[in-house]
Amino acid sequence: MEADTPLRKTSEQKVHVKSNLSWAERIPSKGWLVLSLGTAIIFWTILSFIPSTSRSFPNIIKVTESIGTMIQRGVFWSDIASSLISVLSGFLLGFIISLPVAVLMAWYRPIRLIIEPWIQFIRNIPPLAYVPLVVISAGVGRTPQIIVITIATFLTMSITIYQGVRNIDPTLIKAARVLGAKDRDIFLKVIAPASLPFIMTAIRLGTAIGLTSLIAAESTGASAGLGMRIRALNNTFESSSMLLYIMIIGIIGLIFERLVKLLERRLTGWQEKKEM
């Protein structure tokens, strides 16, 4: 069935080219990942030996051991869970709000002209700066954390989705109209699917922003959480555990990105351009 499709042909060509490639291109991407990880560990180990950096970079063994320490203290899992809850609920709220706002901005010029400057203005302010204001109104606990992350993710996602909706090829809308589409059809059958790639990009950016605002969010007097713990560990100079926690945030970020990529491939595989 697929034997004579143009797509198939290009992949065959690629296979053909591959046979006379340089050594660098012969290593599979999995191999490169292992290599990359290996060199990172080597660098890390070197840093742990250099006197001026060794206190910030305890070696891999110490960091691994600190997992046990944190579990014993009974905070390891609750910190991860707490941060995940904050990031995911903040992100989800931000996403739910940004969708209609983005569509309204793209659809109605006055709304865009009024709201867009606000968003651009607030977007440049680091979340840490407005944390105290949030705490004054929302108190301490889970609520202010979620609010901070919601704000941060909303700002980025609404702009990304809005730009996507605006950049929809107008001939697609014309094509739908001449085929008999009414406003409702245009929205559901053209605008919605056409903006899906941008929505996916927004989700990717949103989860990343959610994580990077974690420290700010958890400086609202949180009682658990990765960001809150890093600050607490700072008071006792426990650099092994700090480095561990920092790396856990990074790993969570990677997992998020993987999941979104997977979703992206399933939902927007029809796209012309391939993501680099």
């Binding site: 001939t171 697609l172 014309k174 094509a175 008999g180 899906l196 029809w270 012309e272």
Partner: peptide, 19 residues
Amino acid sequence: GTGTERGVVFQQYALFPWL
């Protein structure tokens, strides 16, 4: 306004890429 009795073929195809 538009009407289904008048169909259009555009130079840039204007196919829906998700279909």
